[in-house]
């Protein structure tokens, strides 16, 4: 009888120990998911979009041509559609990482894929085409998320969740990086060139007479350049954080069946910490 109790107690102790070890490392997964969510959400703080770029361009054109109208005319539909594609990608990634964080803490996820699915199904994307690979990634990720919200054994399914999501996540992260880091950031280069032409014309036309005006124009020009550069840096830092998230998620995927192994904690914490540093850098630049 005594033997039986000792055996039972040992068993309880061992289970407790294992569950504790498991908790520690799931906590690491939770931390990584948490910092990734915060970092991805920074997208909403970026004060620049394709639509904003289009509006700025119309304003710059009106200034160049000295056009005064009762209301500014600006055709930006296609730029708004480019933003809507980016938004869809953003929501799906934010939803995934929030879900991952909740699952690792055994909490319910309240992710709803309705908005994502309706956006994907169509017209909202307008004539802006997204590659088949990306559409497949959306569909696969959204199915994974749906299962995660309904599965009773969510926590046990964490490894499966990560496994199913890794490939579409990597595709979407790549696409997101391309849109923000190459396309959106690339638009700013054109803005800078237009600015250069505006001030150069002013100079070549001898439009400014006094030294004060000339000094003021030069100062205004460089200040506007600085502002463009700041925006470029904000976008760069954001993209760097997406890079860290992609690498961290790949590590999670590679170790999905050993989520309780201690070494994973050390590796993943490195990515969490890098993402946190980039969040702080982003906030400094964006203030």
């Amino acid at each position: 009888m005594k033997k039986y109790f000792i055996g039972k107690r040992s068993l309880i102790f061992l289970s407790y120990l294992f569950s504790f070890v498991g908790c520690v490392n799931l906590k690491t997964v939770g931390e990584f998911a948490g910092s990734s969510t915060v970092s991805i959400k920074n997208f909403e703080k970026i004060e620049y979009s394709f639509y904003q770029h289009c509006l700025d361009r119309c304003r710059d054109e009106a200034i160049r041509k000295y056009e005064i109208k009762r209301a500014e005319e600006c055709a930006c539909t296609l730029y708004q559609e480019a933003d809507s594609v980016t938004q869809v990608i953003y929501y799906s990634m934010e939803g995934y990482f929030e879900g991952l964080g909740n699952l690792s803490q055994n909490e319910l996820t309240d992710y709803s894929s309705d908005a994502l699915m309706s956006a994907l199904s169509s017209k909202e994307l307008g004539p802006v085409r997204i590659e088949e690979q990306t559409v497949a990634a959306f569909s696969s990720l959204s199915n994974t998320l749906l299962r995660a919200t309904t599965d009773f054994y969510r926590r046990k399914k964490l490894a499966a969740y990560i496994e199913e999501a890794n490939e579409p996540m990597q595709v979407l992260l790549d696409k997101f990086k391309l849109i923000v880091g190459t396309n959106l950031k690339g638009e700013l280069r054109f803005k800078r060139e237009r600015l250069y032409a505006y001030y150069m014309d002013m100079k070549m036309n001898n439009a400014l007479l006094s030294d004060y005006e000339k000094g003021k124009a030069t100062s205004d020009y460089y200040q506007a350049c600085d502002e463009i550069q700041r925006k470029e840096m904000v976008l760069e830092v954001f993209v760097k954080s997406l890079d860290e998230i992609a690498q961290g998620h790949q590590i999670l995927y590679d170790n999905r069946n050993k989520l309780s192994v201690k070494t994973l904690k050390g590796i993943l914490q490195g990515y969490s910490s890098n993402v946190k540093d980039l969040i702080s850098e982003f906030n400094k630049l964006n203030n």
Partner: peptide, 21 residues
């Protein structure tokens, strides 16, 4: 030339926004 330059820059910007279309 100024008008052409602006149009050419616009093409470059539009291509980035429409990207794969």
């Amino acid at each position: 030339l100024s008008d052409i330059q602006n149009s050419v820059l616009r093409f470059g910007e539009d291509i980035l926004a429409y990207s794969t279309t």
